[in-house]
Design a protein around this nucleic acid. Structure first.
Lengths: 220, 220
DNA sequence: GCATTAATGCCCTAGCTAGTGTATTACTGT
DNA sequence: ACAGTAATACACTAGCTAGGGCATTAATGC
């Protein structure tokens, strides 16, 4: 019956602990189920059973299935957004630019391809026709933010002469998709076989950086 | 009540025309519905109504909902596979390599980003947990085949000295994702706003090729 | 300790969905 | 013209699902 306290968000600290705990276990169970089975494939009874909570509690706390869905996505989006913000933050002022590009690439590829972002993306794509605003929201807040941060860093590096970047937004896209485009795409479709090994992810990312540097390096 | 004869596949020509016609309208309606609403979001009654066919006919011809789903995907996969085969076919023996790369890029990007492949991919990603074999099958037959064809062409071009390609498979991925990676990714998430204009698609594709050439060109 | 508030259990319902059965009608090939 | 076959209309079942009601129990804050 114990609920790991780390599941409870700081925002809920002032609430009745019963509420905070219930919200936490419900959100965790619902995320699992929604990501695996989609919106229609998830029943509120399933979530209640998996969260070891009465169905009534879910309705009391969230109102209904759709609100529950939006709640778990809001939480996931905040996480994704936070991650996106500080992915490329150390890039602009780097001394060793290629090294920092490689570090950024590896960080990015690992957390996107190897982490829990892939199931989130699968869910949002699956429900894109049912909840178009949610998919659009995710896109602007997570990948969009990564691209914007990357682009700004690349612009800096161009001004410093460390790279030759014409269109920083385009270069940011090229960077991201050279580093992890194929791996991410594949991951969306392959479910049974385990995700690629870290070494594989890193290797692809680093070779993507090499290509990027040949195209955008100062000597190119 | 007339059924456009072009909907009827050549394989069904020897069948009872009533069967051929029914299959054709059912598959068309089911594809529409499945792509828009997913497997669970599509009811057999919906499909029957949209196809102007009795529900019983669907069960008589296909057996059940799952078989219907597999049937429409089998058809879509054949189309995607056929397209994939001849995307990069003219590349290996090209005289003007950059020009042919650009032509290939534009062809690829237009048909993937601008066409009916995006809804197909959305559906397969959405149902990847329910039908993992189907998603894996698509991946090896459509994108996999494009990559293989591209890689072989790039290998040829390397041997001819027209490009400098180390790892042809990797270079093929880099080409494809430079050309249309970002656009394809975005298209999966954005549903309401109409697909990007042809000029936009072409522009992005061509600028992807420029980056590719800076990295893999013979002078690089 | 006590008033408040949350959680539970259990029942209930209204709607939808996959799938079947059957008798009747309409079309096809010969 | 006729036999065979496909399509239809319609009624039906069994199961599931979102959601609400309500009395009872348990935890919380003071």
């Amino acid at each position: 019956m114990a609920t790991p306290p780390e599941l409870i968000r700081a925002e809920d600290a002032d609430l009745d602990p019963r509420v905070a705990r219930s919200r936490a276990v419900i959100v965790a169970a619902a995320s699992e189920h929604f990501m695996r089975h989609g919106y229609l494939g998830t029943s509120v009874d399933d979530v209640a059973a998996e969260a070891r909570v009465s169905k009534r509690t879910i309705y009391n706390l969230f109102g209904g299935k759709e609100e529950l869905f939006r709640a778990i996505l809001a939480e996931a989006l905040i996480t994704a957004e936070r991650f996106a913000s500080d992915t490329a933050s150390s890039l602009a002022e780097a001394d060793d630019v290629p090294a920092e590009l490689r570090a950024t690439a590896v960080r990015l590829a690992r957390s996107v391809v190897g982490g829990r972002i892939v199931p989130l993306r699968r869910l949002l794509i699956a429900e894109a026709t049912r909840f178009p605003e949610l998919a659009a929201d995710y896109y602007s807040r997570a990948p969009g933010r990564v691209m914007a941060t990357l682009a700004e860093a690349l612009r800096h590096l161009d001004e410093r002469g460390a790279l030759r970047v014409d269109d920083a937004e385009l270069a940011a896209e090229h960077f991201a998709f050279l580093v992890m485009g194929a791996q991410l795409d594949r991951a969306l479709f392959t479910i049974d076989q385990e995700p690629p090994a870290i070494t594989e992810i890193d290797d692809r990312a680093l070779r993507g950086v090499e290509t990027f540097l040949r195209a955008y390096g100062p000597t190119g």
